[in-house]
Design a protein around this nucleic acid. Structure first.
Length: 290
DNA sequence: ACTCGGTCCTGAAGGC
DNA sequence: TGCCTTCAGGACCGAG
């Protein structure tokens, strides 16, 4: 499922395709995803030029020349597919691999036709995704963005911040890190991976972690995400990168989905365990995560 | 103020 | 083989 590294991978994949391009037609094939699309979304997109692609947490932000920003959330099965509208076939100038024409899929919900001959399709079978249009100025005040915590790869995320944010918290560290208000962009997979790297049990109470261990945790979170971005994002189950190729970070998971397998630490004889925590699977090594 | 569980959705996977 | 059940997940929302 798309977490911060996957969304960042999609952003980087779309950047050379969409930046500076004008949308000559926006096809909106259903009225909603998780929520209704904003009023007249197709009309507000059609004719607009893309000025910039940004990311905030797991949201993709497409700045338009109309002063509006298209906000996109991929939910858990959302994908952005790039293909050619024309038969030019060659897309070397874009710096990304572009699909050959694919058959229309019933889950192709929004299709953006660009004036550079490319077509960007938002496909989302489970429809947990979302789209909205908001004013670019003051975008951070948008309902979906206002309460989100610091970017984990940014300067505002460090152990002192985390110590303050977690102080007095009775919930587990697993639940706390999944909370977007505390830190942006983490989902189930990368929380499992980061806690494993930091040697912290997902069962530990968030407010009961010492300062030195929080330092390890912030480092582990940053490293986990950086590694994933470098690997091009994960391709868990039905997830594909923006360029349509399956990612490969899933092969690098150290605990996620590895129940019953030996702990990846050379010096540890533990076995990866799985248990359900607030309705989600937690994978961890009981031996070296305390 | 915080925490927890329900909910949305579809396709993959497992059981009989 | 085929049908049925279960599970996966993000994040909002309401209940406690």
């Amino acid at each position: 499922m798309p977490e911060l590294p996957e969304v960042e991978t999609v952003r980087r994949g779309l950047e050379p395709v969409m930046t500076g391009a004008r949308m000559i037609l926006a096809e909106v094939r259903r009225p909603d995803l998780r929520w209704p699309f904003p009023d007249r979304m197709a009309e507000r997109l059609t004719g607009r030029r893309v000025e910039r692609l940004r990311r905030r947490a797991k949201y993709l932000l497409v700045d338009l020349d109309s002063g509006e920003t298209l906000l996109v959330h991929l939910g858990m099965s959302g994908r952005m597919l790039v293909s050619r509208d024309d038969d030019a076939g060659d897309s070397q100038d874009l710096g990304v691999y572009v699909h050959p024409h694919g058959a229309a899929d019933r889950h192709d919900h929004v299709v953006l036709h660009l004036d550079n001959g490319c077509r960007v399709t938002f496909n989302d079978p489970r429809r947990f995704g979302a789209m909205d249009l908001l004013p670019t100025v003051g975008e951070a005040d948008h309902k979906l963005l206002a309460a989100i915590g610091p970017e984990p790869l940014g300067n505002g995320f460090h152990s002192a911040y985390l110590a303050e944010a977690l102080a007095g918290r009775g919930s587990t560290i697993k639940a706390a890190l999944l909370d977007q208000k505390i830190v942006a962009g983490l989902g189930n997979i990368y929380v499992c991976e980061a806690l494993y790297r930091a040697g912290i049990s997902p069962k530990r109470k968030a407010g009961r972690i010492g300062r030195d261990r929080l330092e390890s945790l912030t480092t582990a979170i940053r490293d986990t995400l950086s590694d994933a971005i470098a690997a091009g994002g994960s391709s868990l189950r039905d997830y594909r990168q923006a360029d349509g190729e399956l990612g490969y970070f899933q092969h690098a998971f150290r605990v996620y989905d590895r129940e019953g397998k030996p702990c990846a630490r050379e010096t540890c004889s533990g076995t990866v365990a799985r248990f359900v925590q607030s309705g989600r699977s937690s994978f961890y090594c009981p031996q070296c995560q305390r």
